[in-house]
């Protein structure tokens, strides 16, 4: 079987400092997976390597059977990979609609078109649909700077859902959200078509364990456990490093 993502011996060092050390992990198509781990464990760095924001020192990354280790980011995206960013990377001076529109167009062949699109162009319609799906209709004409934090996170996810994603990497999408916004997020993730897989980095176990079937725990650039949510809470190694010992970002639940 081909994995959606197959990561083998992935290593990256900055000078003397090895941030990821021979990480090997596979994700199947449609799989929903959480990554936990303390600050600085290398979770975001793993995402950056998968999307090509960073180049690994050694190791390989395969996406649906294609070796993408040396492929440029935009080509990986066109293969169906998507991500959100931990600290939001939105176009602050553009409207919500233009942000979504940019995402909808990014994977389309006509992205270099120099003529404006007609109002009934399928991409214009897709943009409106996507705005509705992430509940941003009311603020579609607002600039991103004028949105609340929660709305900005929604927009991040909306942009990752554009086109036909096959696999989405979500970097702490719930950080800083209110309880209600968290519920909305859980519903949004649960509502994704079943063939779309995702990996979610999440400190809030309530969220992570609700929406995933597999949990991987990282620490110091290494994977220390990869189990089902039920087992992971019982794993003594995980409990020692991660759970009881310190209250992580104040939202850790034992």
């Amino acid at each position: 079987m081909t994995y959606a993502l197959s990561i083998v011996d992935l290593t990256i060092s900055f000078g003397e400092f090895t941030v990821l050390d021979k990480v090997t992990v596979n994700f199947s198509p449609g799989e929903r997976h959480a990554i936990l781990g303390p600050n600085g464990a290398g979770k975001t760095t793993l995402f950056n390597l998968i999307t090509g924001d960073l180049k690994p020192t050694s190791g390989t990354i395969e996406f649906y059977g294609n070796d993408v280790t040396n492929t440029s980011t935009h080509k990986r995206i066109r293969l169906g990979m998507r991500r959100t960013y931990q600290s939001s990377l939105l176009f602050k001076d553009l409207t919500v609609r233009d942000n979504i529109f940019a995402a909808v167009r990014g994977i389309k062949a006509g992205r270099m078109k120099v003529l404006p699109l007609s109002k009934d162009h399928s991409d214009v319609i897709d943009t409106e649909k996507l705005i509705g799906r992430v509940h941003l209709k009311d603020v579609a004409d607002k600039k991103v700077v004028d949105l609340s934090h929660g709305q900005q996170r929604q927009l991040e996810i909306g942009m990752a859902m554009a086109g036909e994603p096959k696999f989405i990497l979500l970097d702490e999408p719930a950080a800083g959200l209110s309880p209600k916004e968290r519920d909305d997020l859980v519903r949004l993730l649960e509502g994704l078509p079943s063939e779309i897989g995702f990996v979610i980095i999440e400190h809030d176990l309530d969220i992570a364990l609700k929406v995933v079937e597999q949990v991987t725990v990282m620490s110091n650039g290494k994977i220390i456990a990869s189990e089902s949510p039920q087992e992971i809470v019982k794993n003594p190694q995980v409990q020692a490093i991660y759970m009881g010992t310190h209250d992580h970002k104040g939202n850790m639940h034992a």
Partner: peptide, 30 residues
């Protein structure tokens, strides 16, 4: 009209946030 076109919106996106534009599938150098 160019700056309102798909190309123009993308161009402004690349100006503000090249890294994100790559992650949306744009070939920013092209």
């Amino acid at each position: 009209s160019l700056i309102r076109s798909p190309f123009g919106v993308a161009l402004q996106g690349i100006r503000d946030n090249p890294r994100r534009m790559k992650a949306l599938g744009y070939n920013i150098f092209l």
